[in-house]
Structure formats: C-alpha cells, structure tokens
Amino acid sequence: MEYYNIGDVQTIKVEATNLHSFVCYGSIVQTIRVEAAKLHSFVCGVTGLRNVNLIGCAGIRNLSFSTACLAGQWFEDLIPKLPLLESLKLDCCYGVKDIKIRNQQIKYLDLNCRVD
C-alpha cells in the first residue's frame, strides 16, 4: 500500500503500473492526478481538494473522499467510469448539492455531505 501524508503541496501526480491502493491526507492540495490501471482503492482526506483526475483507473472498487470540495456533477460523471465500484464514501464533502448515483455493483454507500 502506498501512503502519502502531505502538507503544503498544491498538485500531486502519480503514475504507477502496479499501484493497488492510494491513501492521501493533508491540506492545501488542490489537484490530484492518478494514472494507475491496477488501482483498487482510492482514499482521500484532503481539505479543500477541488480537482481529481483518475486516468485509466476503471478497476477501483473502493472510493472514499472526506473534506473535499467536489461538485455532485463530478461524481455523477465519474461513477459510470468505475464499473467495479463496490464502496463509496463521501464524508464532509463541501459543494455536493445534488448527486445521482447509478451503479449496479455498489454494496456500501456512506454519504455525509455539506452544502456550505
């Protein structure tokens, strides 16, 4: 498992052939870009995160965000691109006002979003 504990980094870019799990906590990060075909788990607790690009990460089974500032439309666009997604957790995600989740594989759904 790769574990990143970051501080004052604005952009994180990860390209990894064999990366299975990505866990990232910190503050001030605005953009995360991950390109990892074998990624199964993406867990992100980055305060104020505004842009996430998961390139070629269709194998994600576990997706978790806390304290991010991502729009509901972003999630609606992403979820259909993750056909194996089983677990989705959104905790204290600001900016999610409306969200439609359509995925036959989801077995665990935990939503705790704020609109302020």
Rank of each mutant, 00 (worst) to 15 (best):
M1L: 13
I79V: 15
L78D: 07
R50S: 12
V43F: 05
K81C: 10
Y25S: 12
A37S: 11
R114V: 11
F42M: 02
H20K: 15
Y25H: 11
L63Y: 12
I32D: 00
R61D: 07
I6L: 12
C69V: 07
Q105N: 12
A58F: 08
S64V: 09
L54P: 06
A71N: 04
I32G: 03
G72T: 05
C113H: 00
R102E: 15
Q73N: 08
V14F: 11
T47S: 06
W74S: 00
Y25Q: 13
I101E: 02
E86D: 02
H40W: 06
I106M: 02
L49M: 05
E86C: 11
C113G: 00
N103H: 05
K107R: 14
Y108L: 12
E15A: 14
R50F: 03
C57E: 04
S66T: 11
F22V: 12
L88T: 06
D116M: 11
F65N: 01
L78H: 13
T47I: 06
V34K: 05
Q105E: 03
A71G: 09
K97V: 14
T67F: 14
V96D: 01
V34W: 05
D8R: 14
E86V: 07
G56D: 10
D91V: 09
G59P: 00
Y94V: 14
K100Q: 08
L90V: 05
D98G: 10
R50M: 12
I32F: 03
E15M: 09
C57L: 04
R33V: 12
V52T: 07
I6M: 08
Y108W: 08
L82P: 00
Q73F: 01
E15T: 12
Y94H: 13
C24K: 01
A58L: 04
P83M: 13
D8G: 07
Y94G: 06
G45E: 15
I101H: 04
N5Q: 12
A71Q: 14
V52K: 06
P83G: 13
R50L: 10
I60D: 04
F65D: 01
T11P: 00
R114T: 08
G7C: 09
A37T: 15
G7H: 11
N5R: 10
P83Y: 09
V115F: 02
K13M: 10
V115Q: 14
T31M: 06
C69G: 05
D116Y: 07
I79E: 05
C57Q: 05
K38P: 00
K100L: 07
S66H: 09
I60L: 14
P80W: 08
Q73I: 10
G95P: 03
P80T: 10
N51T: 13
Y108I: 14
A37V: 12
W74M: 03
